[in-house]
Design a protein around this nucleic acid. Structure first.
Lengths: 239, 239
DNA sequence: CAGTGGTCTAGACCACAAT
DNA sequence: TTGTGGTCTAGACCACTGA
């Protein structure tokens, strides 16, 4: 059953997608294994593997050893979001970046923060609040706790010229992190600093990062009204 | 210069990341080419390629033919966000899904929508508004325009049992899409349907999808208060 | 033009998990 | 136990792009 012959992994990917959309392979269907597909497509197994692995990363297929490869039951749009350093984000918009720190003190965090940074036992943390401005206008308010047990060097940084956001990303490698996006009503002080009315909708990013099993920092970034995260969903089908 | 010998692409990835974090290879630095690295690591070039390609996809490296591979100047956190079908999203939370359509009519869209769906010339579109409920509680309000020039079959769907969200994802393949996230104040009717106060912060997803160069649909999803998108930043370093 | 990454091949061995 | 995907190898050719 030698088809016209597929020369590269993207052509194979397109053909697999075509069969999925044509319902030749409906959701849940177990598709032929790599050896058989390679024979059908007239290519090496590694090429089929490349195509199927890309589709699995895109969420179209689910692959398990021995069980084989099946079409995902619930198609999802998988978007990749880049979260840059704040200074870079502002300068990329062609605006000038300024930074103003408001507070910096070492303390035991409240329980809600403690649950994220040091669930086992309370430790000293560095609490920093600051405002990032774009061309002199409030852009995002940063409320950050840094685990001094994990990052003792942070205690020697005063963060008056370089933001904690930037210093941490450049200095402390992390293995993984949690991120969440919400819409919240601006609280009192936060609203004033962002130059908006209290209760106005603000876009909030909560992020916690770890180095292996040790929490590094947790931060709440509240963006001034009008902030928008843009992204795109990949192009599973080439061209 | 045979190092201890790196056996797999993840070990190579870890070693490259170690050198980046150790500033052996600072941001902007052009690292050795694949052939040299393969010789140093004692493995095949394909293995080095696999490791470097993964790091490039994660945003840590920038690769260009002839120019070589360099450490990214501005480290970014690249998170992947899954955007599931709404029914699935609700059922995954262990809640029951119900759906209620409010309006469905064919019309020429307003200019703001027209700019996204048919920038060249106005065409007939199907405008659908509906509410998705989780265990009987308003979850998200859907305000959608479907380009009938691209998807004529939509005109025959009444969307009273299956939502446009679900029907489109299951029926119409797309090649790419734009997505954006914002926090906005609930407008009048929207606020009433979502069961929240007018002006309350709502999380909004705007999405437009295309099939090649033909726009399929554009939708605004406004989520009831409390909605949160969770994701995580990859684990470039294995374990 | 020439150096780099992008990809393909044919074969091999391994790791995992369903049976 | 055994079938499947996961990966590695050594070599080859190609495509892009900087000089």
């Amino acid at each position: 059953m030698s088809q016209p012959r597929f020369r590269n992994w993207q052509a194979i990917q397109d053909e697999v997608l075509r069969r999925i959309h044509a319902r030749d392979w409906p959701p849940g269907h177990v598709i032929p294994n790599e050896v058989d597909l390679a024979a059908e497509f007239g290519c090496a197994r590694a090429t089929v593997n490349r195509a199927l692995r890309a589709l699995a990363e895109a969420g179209m297929l689910e692959r398990r050893r021995k069980a084989g490869t099946r079409v995902a039951l619930h198609p999802v749009s998988r978007a990749t979001v880049d979260i840059p350093v704040i200074r870079q984000e502002i300068e990329d918009r062609g605006q000038s970046y300024t930074y103003r720190m408001f507070s910096r003190k070492i303390a035991r965090p409240p329980v809600s923060i403690q649950a994220r940074l040091c669930p086992d036992s309370p430790v000293d943390c560095l609490h920093v609040t600051a405002l990032h401005l774009a061309s002199g206008v409030a852009y995002v308010f940063e409320d950050r706790w840094i685990n001094l047990a994990t990052v003792p060097a942070a205690a020697n940084q005063n963060f008056d010229t370089i933001s904690a956001n930037e210093w941490l990303l450049a200095t402390v490698p992390y293995t993984h992190g949690d991120i969440s996006f919400t819409a919240e009503a601006a609280a009192g002080a936060e609203a004033d600093l962002l130059g908006t009315a209290r209760g106005a909708p603000v876009f909030v990013i909560d992020r916690t990062t770890w180095d292996h099993d040790r929490a590094i920092t947790t931060v709440r970034l509240s963006y001034a009204p009008g902030y928008r995260i843009r992204t795109s969903v990949g192009t599973p089908v080439s061209v």
